[in-house]
């Protein structure tokens, strides 16, 4: 699918999403807010995995970092908008600091080191206590807004963040940095020879990725009004986002968003019936996705449309 087509599809989806809260009930509002949140995380993974080829399995670390920065700031009477900005920027800074040593590792080593980083944050917060609440968890100030209005506002916040994240990915795919990242994904030494500053490009990519993930975490913290390390640094968040990215198509612009939508809706409709074997089905689904659509839905669509237009050409040539 060309970038132009993907953007047109994204615009249609955005308009639908804008009018959606007028027609759905609170349960589906909640489901859709979750879809947007996890789609942001998937889009963040797309930058570091899809573009740069660094499999950051532990990207949930920044979801947690964002959630905790937002939580601590909100408790210190910082206004909401600023708290979210701090969560976004703070996560990027953390990624910059840890990316410098960790992004030297390649392939599996980096994947595992990122998971270790995630687990290390959990231990640090548990032992740190203080303003983070440690093992007790961190309650956030409860908004005085009426719940109906509040949940709609959070819906639009998530939607806005997802739109920005998707625009960033769109811009990235045509930018110098985007080309540098794809070059180093295919061959790191090759990119270096061509004059790409690979270290800088990788770190920038992880910072962008972390900013998106941290922003989603920050809004999530405000939404939940209570966070604890188990749910904020849940490796399941990374894993779900990873499946969504694969399902939609990594390295594409709207693939992760489509993947998030399909995955979450299927999960909500089907798996809510089988809660006791949820993971069993999730495991089977994961394996099926990798074996059946390893390149994602977006590639599937573009292959189908390419075949269609080829058939049309053929018919025209015969006539």
């Amino acid at each position: 699918m060309k970038a132009k087509h993907q953007l047109a599809a994204a615009a249609v989806l955005l308009v639908l999403a804008l009018i959606l809260p007028a027609v759905i009930d609170n349960y589906w509002l909640r489901v859709m807010t979750t879809v947007f949140m996890i789609a942001i995380v998937a889009q963040g993974l797309n930058v570091i995995v899809g573009f740069a080829g660094y499999h950051a399995f532990g990207n949930a670390a920044f979801f947690g970092v964002g959630a905790y920065i937002a939580g601590v700031s909100l408790n210190a009477q910082v206004p909401l908008a600023l708290a979210i900005v701090l969560a976004t920027g703070g996560s990027a800074v953390v990624a910059g600091i840890f990316g410098w040593p960790l992004l030297r590792l390649r392939g599996h080593y980096f994947a595992i080191a990122s998971v270790a980083l995630n687990m290390a944050f959990v231990e640090v917060i548990l032992n740190l206590g203080g303003v983070t609440g440690g093992a007790m968890g961190l309650p956030l100030p409860i908004s005085p807004m009426p719940p109906d209005l509040l949940y709609r506002m959070i819906y639009y916040m998530m939607l806005g963040a997802l739109t920005v994240a998707t625009l960033v990915v769109w811009h990235l795919s045509g930018s110098r940095l985007g080309y540098a990242l794809r070059a180093l994904r295919d061959s790191e030494s090759g990119a270096e020879v061509m004059g790409v500053d690979t270290v800088k490009a990788k770190i920038l990519a992880w910072m962008i990725s972390a900013a998106m993930t941290g922003c989603a975490g920050g809004i999530w913290a405000y939404w939940l009004t209570f966070i604890e390390v188990g749910s904020a640094f849940d490796i399941g968040i990374s894993m779900r986002a990873y499946i969504m990215m694969l399902l939609g198509g990594m390295g594409t612009i709207i693939g992760p968003v489509v993947g998030a939508f399909v995955f979450e809706i299927v999960a909500t409709l089907v798996w809510s019936e089988f809660t006791h074997i949820h993971n069993l089905l999730l495991g089977m689904f994961l394996i099926a996705v990798v074996i059946l659509v390893p390149n994602g839905i977006i590639h599937l669509i573009s292959r189908a449309s390419a075949r269609l237009s080829a058939a049309r050409e053929l018919r025209r040539a015969k006539a």
């Binding site: 499999h55 990873y242 993971n279 069993l280 999730l282 394996i287 990798v290 390893p294």
Partner: peptide, 28 residues
């Protein structure tokens, strides 16, 4: 083996799936 022929890193996702499957099976 089939997944290894396409992408080595995707095997991580498959083994994670197997892990989830086995754990839930034994819970059952």
């Amino acid at each position: 083996n089939p997944v290894m022929h396409t992408s080595l890193l995707l095997t991580l996702v498959v083994t994670f799936g197997i892990d989830l499957f086995l754990i839930d099976l034994f819970v059952l």
